[in-house]
């Protein structure tokens, strides 16, 4: 297949390519790919939550704290998520004006685990820690996540800037944007020293 496509890009007329019978290569391609597959590793864990928290506090993270969700806050979370939310509390780490959150939301069918650092009510870092979807992988790269840097929250609980999406990855983009808004909203509930 590759050979045939290389010939095409090299300018060989398609009529000539059609005479190249490649069906014989089919079993070989199958076997090669099947041999590669067992090398597969676990889901795409780019960084563990522990490592993210440690990194965020230069290796000296504070003790984790818990934010209990009162009814009005829970309602605000649900408004952002656009679906119900069953949780009662959220764990976080706080030091000075900074807070760190590890949150998850469904993209298409699977959760995207995301680490978010808030500094003085603005997003300092947003990083995809675990990505389990087959599509929408672009959201894990800085060329996408850098758009969130220094984003804040409006009174309507929207980001104060537009996040440009990715074609074919609408649901993943949507999930990450929601998590950014939630982290900012939760941070507003904390009393920073």
């Amino acid at each position: 297949m590759m050979f045939k496509l290389m010939l095409f890009f090299a300018g060989v007329p398609s009529s000539a390519l059609m005479n190249v019978r490649l069906k014989a290569y089919l079993p070989v391609i199958f076997i090669c790919l099947m041999c590669l597959a067992p090398a597969a590793r676990a889901e795409n864990i780019y960084q563990t939550s522990d490592d993210f928290v440690n990194e965020s506090f230069a290796g000296k993270p504070p003790e984790a704290e818990v934010l209990w969700l009162q009814d009005d806050l829970k309602k605000q979370l649900e408004d952002i998520l656009d679906h119900g939310y069953e949780g009662k509390r959220v764990r976080y780490w706080k030091q000075g004006q900074r807070s760190v959150w590890v949150l998850e939301e469904i993209g298409k069918t699977k959760p995207i685990t995301t680490g978010i650092v808030i500094n003085n009510k603005k997003i300092e870092v947003i990083k995809v820690l675990v990505f389990r979807e087959s599509r929408g992988w672009e959201i894990k790269y800085p060329f996408f996540t850098e758009q969130f840097t220094k984003a804040g929250l409006t009174h309507e609980h929207k980001l104060d800037r537009t996040i440009d999406g990715i074609s074919g990855a609408t649901l993943s983009v949507r999930a990450l944007t929601k998590l950014a808004r939630i982290a900012l909203l939760l941070d507003q509930q904390l009393k920073h020293s």
Partner: peptide, 20 residues
Amino acid sequence: MLLSRTLISAAITTTLAAPV
């Protein structure tokens, strides 16, 4: 998807590092 969303909503409160 609905099933997983419910599970994951609860997972927002989960602890560090443990696989969800």
